[in-house]
């Protein structure tokens, strides 16, 4: 059965490692729904959050292949219920001061905020689940969304074991 999985990959900061990881997905015809990367809590170690829709059987095999890469420290997969996750979106709209407070209502209701304001356009920021981001998009649609950009997912796992625990288990200094 297909479901959404959040794959977390911890790697050394080496050139080309992202390519090595994505090849594993391409080869198995797996679409990456979103991918984000940044340095994690351990200095010098990078964290990739990769979201895919697939079966658990497949995700296990993919994670094994990822972990097999020389520069990968550890890879995990979690279902949506096992992670806390967020995405962020920016919306650019024409600035229109005569909307009778309707805009204010929408922003309050959606817990969104205004990032920048200029005579020509307004930028709105919203963080949340994909559905929430989408529903704000729908609400803003009538005002004419000029541009819309959304980040990939960032996720943190609920189980309490930390990466450092794993690294220590793998017997090297953190």
């Amino acid at each position: 059965m297909e479901q959404t999985f959040n794959i977390s990959v911890f790697t050394e900061n080496s050139i080309g490692i992202l390519n090595r990881i994505t090849i594993i997905f391409t080869r198995r015809h797996l679409n990456i729904e979103s991918i984000t990367a940044s340095e994690c809590e351990v200095p010098g170690v990078f964290r990739y959050t990769i979201v895919v829709n697939t079966s658990e059987e497949k995700v296990i095999k993919v994670v094994n292949q990822i972990e097999k890469q020389v520069d990968v420290l550890k890879a995990f997969y979690h279902s949506d219920s096992e992670v806390v996750y967020q995405e962020m979106a920016l919306y650019k709209l024409p600035t229109n001061l005569n909307n009778g407070g309707e805009m204010e209502q929408i922003l309050r209701m959606h817990h969104a905020r205004i990032l920048s304001l200029s005579p020509e356009f307004t930028t709105i920021e919203k963080t949340g689940r994909p559905e929430e981001i989408n529903s704000l998009f729908e609400a803003l649609h009538p005002f004419g969304v000029l541009e819309y950009a959304k980040s990939g997912r960032v996720a943190i796992s609920k189980p309490m074991k930390t990466l450092e625990d794993y690294l220590t288990e793998m017997s090297f200094e953190v």
Binding site: T11, E12, V70, D71, V72, L73, L167, M170, F172
Partner: peptide, 12 residues
């Protein structure tokens, strides 16, 4: 200077 490699932390 040459030093043989005997471990890589991300590779077991």
């Amino acid at each position: 200077q040459y030093e043989k490699c005997s471990s890589i932390r991300s590779y077991l």
